[in-house]
Write a protein that binds this DNA or RNA. Structure first.
Lengths: 117, 117
DNA sequence: GTATTACATCGACAGACATAACTGTTATTG
DNA sequence: CAATAACAGTTATGTCTGTCGATGTAATAC
């Protein structure tokens, strides 16, 4: 897993010469990185991050109508952010009559969380 | 810190009526969320996430010339990604002659990491 | 000095993104 | 049934992003 890179090439290289030994990057990491970047990208907006924060704190299902007044954005915009979070597999929703209830999928954050710590 | 939201309004509301009690969102969380979203956004690209991964695994300073062959992108594009990571405060760099050495600022990831776990 | 290497910046472009207004769908109320 | 509320989807728009090629800057090698 550890990629062995030299700390410093000491001299300028000639025209076609390589800087250093070819480094093999583990492919297993690449798929993992794609997934983690997808999650991080979805969290890379203050409103979406706060949405996830609220949903996580409740550990239950929260009605969209209760999320709207928390933020200074229109309802369609909130719906857009929720869709982003759904597409990233971070949250899921459930319909009950007129209302939609959202909740966090706990395992969705495990990968990124583990890598960060 | 815990925001008390009702689980379900049982009936349709009248025209101007509120869905539920006004919910106060803690402002301290808002600043925190802004910063964490900034970090998450910077990690929200597979190449940048892998860059941080490589730099973290080395726990030392890595020459840019050794990063370039790891990815299938041009040198200016890599430079662009490194700048994004610098702007987000995740990495820093140091010049030594012709070469630039990058390293992760460990504390930069602590906030997001702590929130996620 | 001149040539060349390492890296950053600039300019340009296609694609993605955040937002809002409008519209559509579904379900509840009367 | 008709009216209306909750929410999602569509469309439009301006901004941001990722990418590359060309250029700029600084330091090394000759």
């Amino acid at each position: 897993m550890h990629v062995d890179l030299e700390l410093a090439p000491k001299q300028k290289r000639a025209a076609g010469e390589r800087c250093c030994e070819p480094v093999v990057y583990p492919d297993v990491q690449r798929d993992h990185a794609l997934r983690m970047a997808e999650v991080a990208k979805a969290l890379g907006d203050p409103i979406r991050l706060q949405l996830v924060d609220v949903l996580r704190k409740h550990a239950g299902k929260v009605c969209v109508c209760e999320l709207v007044p928390l933020f200074d954005i229109s309802q369609p915009t909130l719906s857009h952010h929720l869709k982003k979070l759904r597409d990233a597999g971070i949250v899921a929703s459930e319909r009950r009559g007129l209302w939609a209830y959202y909740y966090v999928i706990p395992s969705a954050l495990e990968g990124l969380s583990g890598w960060l710590s």
